[in-house]
Design a protein around this nucleic acid. Structure first.
Length: 916
RNA sequence: GCGCGCGUGGCGGAAUUGGCAGACGCGCCAGACUUAGGAUCUGGUCCCGCAAGGGGUGGAGGUUCGAGUCCUCUCGCGCGCACCA
């Protein structure tokens, strides 16, 4: 396609100007603002150190920072980046102080695996990849404040990741106050009478603790994985098989925050589906724990149930095969069968265990439990449909009212007793799991027969609590976060291990002064032959002179991304992880609304005003970051309970074939190719024009051409045809002087410094209104179509008033900033005025008076079908409208021979005549 | 299986509180300019029909003067969770 306008000259020109001027730099409170900076000029803050109270209201707009992979940028990345950039530019024009940073989530497996293969240090690959990403992102003209760039692999960054880990390590969750507190506030029970016992107690309460629990081990990756990184028994990354294996691991006590993580979702402006995903992940369920005495044992079995009202229907019990009581309860006759079953289950891959619609399996242990409500003797089974990791690892089975128990009971011929009557007569009680009326639920001491389910639950729990047989509880699916990895390319833990007098190893935090703990140089990045993490290879690093040993695990990739949005606030601070004053300003909710300029009121938005990224982080990253933030909040380091006030997930960009882009399908679009052919402005515009930000939508290079043509029409609206021909000839003759020729272009003769007609003003103000409203609602696609409509109309005008075009460029600027800047400069040169900074020029307001029509055309319907249109004064009353409608011949024709039943007149909308 | 979301031209998608379905763009058709057109400009383009007219927002019902929009059922697609007691 022929080049529509010289974007190849315009785009680099403005990008380098912005870089030289630091146009998009955001200033922290107390920071000196250079007098010549356009932000200083706009807000009258030049040459001063402005306090937070003097700065305009803040707007913190954040992108999920990328992992800089070797493959370079993908067309999916710039979708969210473009959206946030448009809003950043819009809000600057609106008078807000915009923080819009970018950085690199650069620890991670690909660089490490490359290192294992080639021996090249991951630092080298990482730096090269960052350079590529940065070049690509910068070529799109995004208005990031690059002075705030962060890199999670920079020791100046990860020293603070390690510092936050120390805060977690040195804190405990006080259930009384429902928040984290320094470990020093912990009180010890009397039985902790030795230092060793006190240490063990303390270590068991820390937010970062060591556990020996079984973990997912991935042989192919040579590391353990978090629950969240295992999907259907395979690793999320690479799809390798994983096995369960007991190992010593660092855990973070996120479960302590389950309730707050759930509750505080209500404070957030996130999509309902996203909140729902988080709620499901946290998985709160209310119920009761009930004690069942075990026959012949001095031991009782505790189960968790959400349906204590069905206790009378419990006809058997099931333990998870790995449950610790299984050995005790199994009778000699059943031992062989039980052992065989446990063996079989442990050999099963996780894929097999979680397979859909699998036949229930299980074995009778020979043991019996006593149902506390009626004293009945019920058999205890083991089955792998009960999971050790949820609840108490044991259940009471009520086959009549639980689908899984029913399936199991039917297979093994266990009794099925109805205890709930469905509210609807026709419903079969077998397998009915909803609420109803309790039946057959009377025992010697308690009866709930006849009670509706909620009351039955309450009554039985009360009885259980009185008898000491159970209590009301809340259970969560959420597990503690497995926080260590057996890798090289991650943050080392600021932890060492020492031996006590008895030779037992215990852990100890390094002092803050020892941070950062840097990973040692290695020759070989593989795990050691005996399965130790790669850091164990560096003996000199691991073994300290006083006999202590360093922790050789590293933190997972999530660690760095848990708090990067706080580091952007003070990225070079050497004393603190972030700056409290900057934090209060950029994250705080305290900015008074009346400080907004241009009549806008800014609602308080605690935390990041807008966070945009993909759904792939809907659960993990967002839950982890919220958790860390809450800990920091409890400890007084941040001022808001939540980090991200508003969050939007951009949709996936699919290939031209409507399939997910992938190398194997060969449908991947490389942004570099698009930029070369159509330029950054067209690329940005197309990414926004495709459809709603949140939707998935297929790429279409033809669609790029469409918006590119639109930009060409904008260009030709301004530029003199003859001057452009001349420009092209000069560029061909002397390409080296192209920049000079560009500056000599002339405006079209149609562009005149004349007052606009009413019609022109109307078109312009309709456009201002639509673009403004759509930007507020993140409807970029329809904002662009409004600008297209304006340009199509303006194309037909004989005279193009300078003032109209000038305002139009302001609307265009957030979307296509390079072209807008170039034409803005040209327009001002043409009228002999100095061009003010387009970035900080106040956003135009529309005048509603200009949009008012004198007359409108309204449809007249007969029986809901449009039969004619009438022209009436805009404020015509009902009677006028009605008579105008009946005056229409076409309407009369459709009323022939019919009786009029009703006439509906909606002023300003329509007239509808119902006739029959 | 459960939960959530979505179904509108040949395609991407527009349609305040229920009020003129198909904005804008792609594609396609015709014309103008042109040595030429993968450039540009102008006009047309939901379907059937020469027209008058009729039909039309996955399908079937319903509420309403009026339904893409609300309700019920149903089919299809996407996403999330997946034996969570």
């Amino acid at each position: 396609m022929r080049r529509q306008y010289p974007f190849h000259l315009i785009e680099p020109k403005w990008q380098s100007r912005w870089a030289a001027e630091q146009t998009f730099r955001a200033f922290n409170p107390g920071e000196e603002i250079p007098p010549e900076h356009p932000f200083a000029r706009r807000h009258g803050l030049g040459g001063r150190k402005a306090a937070s109270s003097e700065l305009p209201p803040k707007f913190y707009v954040l992108d999920m920072f990328p992992y800089p992979s070797g493959a370079g940028l993908h067309v999916g990345h710039p979708e969210g980046y473009t959206a946030t950039d448009i809003l950043a530019r819009y809000e600057r024009a609106r008078g807000r102080h915009v923080l819009h940073p970018m950085g690199w989530d650069a620890f991670g497996l690909p660089a490490e695996q490359y290192a294992i293969q080639t021996g090249q240090h991951p630092r080298i690959t990482t730096e090269a990849n960052i350079a590529t990403f940065k070049r690509q992102i910068q070529s799109l003209g995004f208005s990031y404040d690059w002075t705030r760039e962060v890199d999670t692999t920079d020791p100046g960054y990860y020293r603070w990741t390690q510092w936050i880990f120390l805060k977690l390590y040195n804190s405990w969750f006080n259930p009384q106050t429902n928040r984290a507190e320094p470990i020093e506030t912990l009180t010890y029970p009397p039985e902790c009478d030795t230092e060793a016992k006190r240490r063990a107690y303390r270590d068991s309460k820390r937010l970062a603790y060591v556990s020996e629990a079984p973990v997912w081990w991935c042989e192919a990756l040579g590391t353990v994985l978090a629950n969240e990184e295992v999907v259907n028994g395979r690793s999320e990354r690479g799809n390798h098989p994983v096995v369960r294996r007991p190992m010593r691991q660092w855990m973070l006590r996120i479960t302590a925050y389950a309730e707050r993580l759930l509750q505080d979702l209500d404070l957030l402006d996130w999509s309902e589906s996203l909140k729902e995903m988080q709620r499901n992940w946290i998985g709160r369920s209310e119920g009761a724990e009930v004690e069942f005495r075990l026959e012949g044992l001095d031991e009782s079995l505790r189960v968790f149930t959400t349906r204590p009202d069905t206790l009378f229907g419990a006809t058997y019990m099931v333990l998870a095969p790995e449950h610790p009581l299984v050995d005790r309860i199994t009778t000699p006759e059943q031992r062989a069968a039980v052992e065989a079953y446990r063996e079989e289950v442990s050999r099963k891959s996780d894929l097999e265990r979680t397979e859909l619609a699998r036949e229930k399996t299980g074995v009778f242990t020979g043991g019996y439990a006593i149902n506390p409500v009626n004293g009945e003797r019920i058999p205890v089974w083991i089955a792998d449909y009960v999971l050790l990791s949820y609840g108490t690892g044991a259940i009471m089975a009520v086959p009549a009212h639980d689908t899984r128990d029913l399936e199991f009971a039917e297979k093994f011929n266990l009794p099925i007793v109805q205890v709930v009557q469905p509210p609807d007569e026709g419903t079969d009680w077998r397998g009915f799991v909803g609420d109803g009326i309790s039946v057959n639920s009377t025992g010697p001491e308690v009866s709930i027969t006849g009670l509706p389910t909620p009351e039955a639950k309450a009554k039985i729990i009360e009885w259980l609590e009185q008898k000491g047989l159970g209590r009301r509880t809340v259970n969560y699916k959420l597990r503690d976060w497995l926080f260590s990895r057996q890798r090289y390319w991650g943050e080392p833990f600021p932890i060492i291990w020492r031996q006590d007098e008895e030779g037992n190893w215990y852990h100890e935090a390094l002092p803050e002064s020892e941070l950062p703990v840097m990973p040692p140089p290695l020759e070989e990045y593989k795990p050691t032959p005996d399965g130790q993490p790669p850091l164990a290879r560096a003996k000199d690093w691991v073994e300290l002179p006083d006999g202590a040993r360093r922790e050789v695990n590293t933190m997972p990739q999530w660690a760095g991304s848990c708090w990067y949005y706080l580091r952007y606030l003070a990225p070079r601070d050497r004393e603190r992880f972030t700056d409290p004053e900057a934090e209060a300003y950029w994250m705080g909710a305290g900015a008074p609304a009346e400080r907004g300029t241009g009549g806008i009121s800014v609602p308080p938005r605690p935390g990041v005003d807008l966070y945009v990224g993909g759904t792939e982080h809907a659960v993990l990253h967002l839950l982890y970051a919220r958790f860390w933030h809450k800990v920091l909040y409890d400890l007084g380091y941040v001022s808001t309970p939540e980090p991200f006030f508003r969050l939007v997930n951009q949709g996936l960009i699919l290939g031209e074939d409507g399939q997910k882009m992938s190398k194997s399908r060969g449908n991947v679009v490389n942004p570099d190719d698009i930029l070369r052919e159509y330029g950054a402005d067209a690329f940005r515009l197309y990414e926004m024009f495709m459809g709603p930000l949140q939707d998935s939508k297929p790429w279409s290079t033809k669609g790029v051409e469409g918006v590119y043509r639109f930009l060409g029409r904008v260009w030709r609206l301004f530029i003199d045809e003859a001057a452009e021909k001349e420009f092209e000839q000069r560029c061909t003759a002397e390409p080296d002087r192209a920049a000079e020729w560009l500056d000599q272009l002339r405006l079209s003769g149609r562009v005149q410094d004349q007052p606009a007609t009413r019609e022109q003003l109307k078109a312009l103000h309709a456009c201002i209104r639509k673009v403004t409203e759509d930007l507020e609602g993140l409807r970029f696609n329809t904002a662009i179509s409004a600008m297209m409509t304006f340009v199509n109309e303006a194309n037909g005008w004989e005279v193009l008033p300078v003032a109209v075009l000038r305002t139009f460029l302001q609307l265009l600027a957030p979307f296509a900033p390079h072209l807008a800047e170039e034409l803005w400069a040209l327009l001002h040169r043409h009228v002999g005025r100095e061009a003010p900074s387009l970035t900080y020029e106040p956003w135009p307001e529309y005048d509603p008076a200009l949009l008012v029509e004198d007359e409108v055309e309204l449809p007249v319907m007969v029986n809901g079908k449009v039969r004619d249109r009438i022209r009436v004064p805009v404020n015509a009353d009902q009677a006028t409208l009605e008579s105008a409608a009946f005056a229409s011949e076409r309407v009369q024709a459709h009323l022939q021979g019919k009786t009029i039943r009703k006439v509906v007149v909606v002023p300003g909308k329509l007239v509808n005549i119902a006739a029959g």
